[in-house]
Nucleic acid binder design. Structure first.
Ligand code: MN
Ligand code: MN
Ligand code: MN
Ligand code: MN
Lengths: 219, 219
DNA sequence: ATAATTTTTTAGACCAGTCTAAACTTTATA
DNA sequence: TATAAAGTTTAGACTGGTCTAAAAAATTAT
């Protein structure tokens, strides 16, 4: 049984390690968690005592098999709750993250099973992020940033990179981009990387390179 | 902003004081919270510093106007979540309390408003307990224990007294008692207070005095 | 290769919440 | 009304999570 704080650290380490594929440094965790390095050192000792990560002094931490499993359970809960909030309670996609940060810590396997069933076993959350299934498996198709798509091609929006800022999501809603939208790349400006796109064959807009890097689409 | 622990103490004090109508002793709180009296003394000092209760050394605590409001908000959330779990996710009424104990602490006024709306503004939870409205108002009709009903009368089940034990709820389900059931009192045994009842005109069962004291019905 | 800089860890402190043991106040009993 | 019993508070300690300041290790620059 993990404390709320331990769960949050473990999840942060999972994300920072790209799903357990690379090791993570103390300062990275401190940044991500908005705590001080000294606090991270204390916590990684605890998590490593619980065999959820391996900790090598001065060289950072690596997530273990068990740690990955536990992290995926938390992520699964987070994304199922976000899906519930949008699909069932009609939240906007920029309103759900904070609440899901709380809901993800509710301890009740039965609740998550029933929620999953009620939502009809969704495979992606409102931001297009994959929802791990009960066994922790993630099935994602290929996703590429919009900035990498050649001119004249038409693609479908699969997901958005959303760190902490809901303002990016609000911006996307405003210009008409949503998960599932069809985007035709009309023109690409070489000098600043900005792109002109047509959304659903109806609306023509410009997006900056910054934005197009964070919109993930079909290859 | 109250901590999870402060919320739990405040709710316990509200319930022990019968909705703020009487004062509550240290040991009663300690019993209800499964903590030691010394811990209660510490906490009531904190809650009284926050003006949620008034604390008179050696004579117990009384809940304030603000304390009542805050307690009712928590109770509202608890009961809305229990309603959600039963109505929407098909939990049994004996499975919801523990989960609602966690969910009641989620901080998001918007979530509660939307949940309330989604559930169509229910006025009672799965155990028949009234759900305070957004302003904290409770509207309950008159409820009397089944043991006080005269023989030959027929009544409707309005609520059940459920402390911590889900076993009483399981027992009620087993014999066929539920919120809304019609009970005809066939016979009352004077010597032990047990009652013979007919449920929905179909099933004849005996219930002990103990049980009949905890089934609340129309007068 | 040594020095300067950055990163990380340790040491010691603090807060919230809990406990036990001892002191104190109130209530019950004789 | 004095004494015993019960209830309550205080004092001091502990855990989990956090911090700052100082020490130690690793990295980078000279
Ligand atoms: Mn999120
Ligand atoms: Mn979290
Ligand atoms: Mn309950
Ligand atoms: Mn609670």
């Amino acid at each position: 049984m993990l404390s709320l704080t331990e769960e949050n650290y473990l999840k942060a380490i999972y994300h920072l390690s790209d799903g357990g594929t690379k090791s993570v440094l103390t300062n990275e965790v401190a940044d991500a968690m908005s705590t001080k390095p000294a606090s991270v050192t204390d916590m990684v000792k605890k998590l490593s005592a619980k065999k959820l990560i391996t900790y090598e002094k001065y060289y950072g931490v690596t997530i273990t098999k068990q740690g990955k499993t536990d992290a995926l359970t938390i992520i699964r809960k987070h994304r199922l709750w976000e899906t519930f909030l949008v699909q069932t309670l009609n939240f906007h996609w920029d309103q759900v993250h904070e609440v899901a940060e709380q809901l993800e810590h509710i301890q009740s396997p039965l609740l998550i099973e029933k929620l999953d069933e009620f939502l009809n076993f969704p495979i992606a959350d409102p931001h297009g992020h994959p929802i791990p299934d009960k066994s922790g498996k993630i099935h994602t198709g290929q996703q590429v940033p919009l900035c990498d798509i050649a001119a004249k091609k038409t693609v479908t929006v699969l997901a958005v990179n959303v760190k902490e800022s809901s303002s990016f999501l609000q911006y996307l809603s405003k210009i008409g981009v949503y998960i599932g939208a069809r985007l035709a790349i009309l023109d690409k400006a070489e000098f600043d990387g900005s792109i002109e796109i047509m959304i659903d064959g109806k609306k023509k807009v410009f997006v900056s390179k910054e934005a197009s890097q964070n919109i993930l689409v079909t290859p």
